[in-house]
Amino acid sequence: MLRDKVRTGTALIINEIYPSVQGEGLLIGTPCILVRFQGCNLRCPWCDQPSALSFKKPNANIDDILEEIAKYPQRHVVLTGGEPFAQPSLHLLIYELLSRGYSVQIETNGTLWNEKLKDVATLLHITCSPKAVVNWYVHPSILQSAKELKFVVDDELSIHALKRKDFLPFLERKLIVLQPESNKVKFLLKALEIQEHLLKEGYTVRVIPQTHKLIGLR
């Protein structure tokens, strides 16, 4: 009974929920249900989801969200935003998704963390995208739990940033993705140059554009 009350009484801020295909990062091509939260703690100049930046009043309880997700056959749920970790009750939704057998991916800027996810962090695919607007800061718990680092290649990104001490373990394990900003040619070329430079130093990174945009998906 208590668990039911928590699900129906806990509200989150949802921008939209819809079926799609993961178009970014190491899980590219995976059929998924995308849950986009409303509200972000950062303001990146090239953000491609400006409608999801501002914080609004909570508009959906956990049962509402689970009911919407259950409409679709996909079993992989991508929690994105906005910034998912800006939702204080994020862990409650994740507990419910895991208990129902979903795989859960969180796309985060890496600056925030929810300590109540500590015990299930290994079950999650956390995609962290460090941002120049906070000088590439990533919360230590995100660094411990992330399965990949995805860098948007823009005018700010440099090889020096990629080789920060905090990020070297990901370089060494080939878990870094370079994503050209807005799929612009100049940033694709920059990504390829960075990739070649790192290859000469013994590091392999992947260059992956936003493929959902290339094929006309949201």
Score class of each variant (00 low, 15 high):
4 D>Y: 08
6 V>T: 03
7 R>W: 03
13 I>L: 12
13 I>P: 08
15 N>P: 07
15 N>R: 09
20 S>W: 05
21 V>I: 14
25 G>P: 08
26 L>H: 09
27 L>Y: 14
32 C>N: 12
34 L>F: 15
38 Q>D: 15
44 C>A: 04
44 C>F: 05
46 W>N: 13
47 C>F: 12
55 F>Q: 11
55 F>G: 12
56 K>W: 10
57 K>V: 13
58 P>I: 11
59 N>M: 12
62 I>H: 02
65 I>E: 03
67 E>A: 15
69 I>T: 01
72 Y>D: 02
72 Y>W: 15
75 R>Y: 10
77 V>D: 07
79 L>M: 10
80 T>E: 07
80 T>G: 13
82 G>W: 01
82 G>R: 10
89 S>E: 14
89 S>G: 10
97 L>I: 09
98 L>D: 03
99 S>I: 02
100 R>E: 15
100 R>N: 14
103 S>P: 08
104 V>Q: 11
108 T>F: 07
112 L>A: 02
113 W>L: 15
114 N>D: 15
115 E>N: 04
117 L>Y: 04
119 D>I: 01
120 V>C: 05
123 L>T: 00
124 L>A: 00
130 P>S: 14
131 K>V: 10
131 K>P: 08
140 P>F: 01
142 I>E: 01
143 L>M: 10
144 Q>G: 01
146 A>V: 01
148 E>N: 01
149 L>K: 03
153 V>S: 06
154 D>Y: 04
156 E>K: 04
156 E>C: 06
159 I>C: 08
163 K>A: 07
163 K>R: 15
163 K>D: 09
164 R>Y: 06
166 D>E: 15
167 F>T: 03
168 L>Y: 00
169 P>K: 04
169 P>Q: 06
170 F>V: 09
173 R>M: 06
174 K>F: 05
176 I>A: 02
178 L>A: 12
179 Q>I: 03
180 P>Y: 06
181 E>L: 01
184 K>C: 04
184 K>Q: 12
188 L>A: 06
189 L>H: 11
191 A>S: 13
193 E>K: 04
199 L>D: 06
202 G>R: 10
204 T>C: 10
206 R>V: 04
209 P>W: 03
210 Q>N: 08
211 T>V: 15
214 L>R: 03
215 I>W: 06
215 I>A: 04
217 L>S: 12
217 L>H: 11
